[in-house]
Write a protein that binds this DNA or RNA. Sequence first.
DNA 1: ATTGATAATGAAAACCATTTTCAATAACAA
DNA 2: TTGTTATTGAAAATGGTTTTCATTATCAAT
Lengths: 148, 148
Amino acid sequence: MPGPRKWRHRHQRYFERWTAPRESILDLLSRTSKHMSAKEIYAILYRLSPGIGLTTIYRTLDLLVKMGLINKFTIGDGQSRYEFQHEDKKGHHHHVICSKCGKIIDYSDFLEDELELVHKTEKHLSQKYNFKVLGHNIEFYGLCEKCQ
Amino acid sequence: MPGPRKWRHRHQRYFERWTAPRESILDLLSRTSKHMSAKEIYAILYRLSPGIGLTTIYRTLDLLVKMGLINKFTIGDGQSRYEFQHEDKKGHHHHVICSKCGKIIDYSDFLEDELELVHKTEKHLSQKYNFKVLGHNIEFYGLCEKCQ
DNA sequence: ATTGATAATGAAAACCATTTTCAATAACAA
DNA sequence: TTGTTATTGAAAATGGTTTTCATTATCAAT
């Protein structure tokens, strides 16, 4: 029961076979702006195809992270969350996390100021420590409007 | 068997009794620059006083985080890590994390540029979303010298 | 289209960091 | 010194994630 295979021919070095679960998990994440946990993804996909297993969700998420198609992060509630990694720089954003209710606001203002700082820092880190920077993570935490 | 109680009279609203485990955990973290997990802390303190329990380590770490005396964070290896929160701004730093071996470099250059961006952002977030920013987290990840 | 090698899957069990339970202990005010 | 009760620690429970392994399904070769 293979669906449309629009991800089929990308990054093929990471896998041998492109399967229905891989298609559906990546497709789901690419269509939502939510920051979903493995269980939440499982709950949704289970309704569509009850044969799917939570194990496969975890394995596929790992794969997609390695492929750089999705990001993995945590809001401190003991589980990992995943979001689609948009290719354009317009998709770049940070998380503003409410420490009380876990609400996440995606925030993307001041990107230019930020990029300047990030580039400066990356250059410096590579010179000072010979550290190869692959990514960065900026987040703010505090209390959302409702939780104050 | 209470030790020296140099933390005794601070933040007393968070607890009723200042005990030996609390003293020793905070003392240990205040003396190291390492980023330790609960188990690592347990392993060290167990040698000094074998009566101590891992449960107490976790409970005390939670308490110290609430008191603002230590920071809790993760490097993505499935366990929480803790570091002493120095009072002076000189103690402020970020983490540069090697995705492969987990090595952490504490990094604190460009703090002025960063603070400028952070303040700008905090102000903006409070205006735009009425979000009360309590803290922020900036980290870089990639490959350290040895792991490239 | 069929076949065969084997990558990928899913159910169950294992794993492991963290939390909860609860009886015993110890801090400290009186 | 004593009594109250906050705190502790051992054991059990919890819950997210990983491992195991027999089964299934992809896809290259036929």
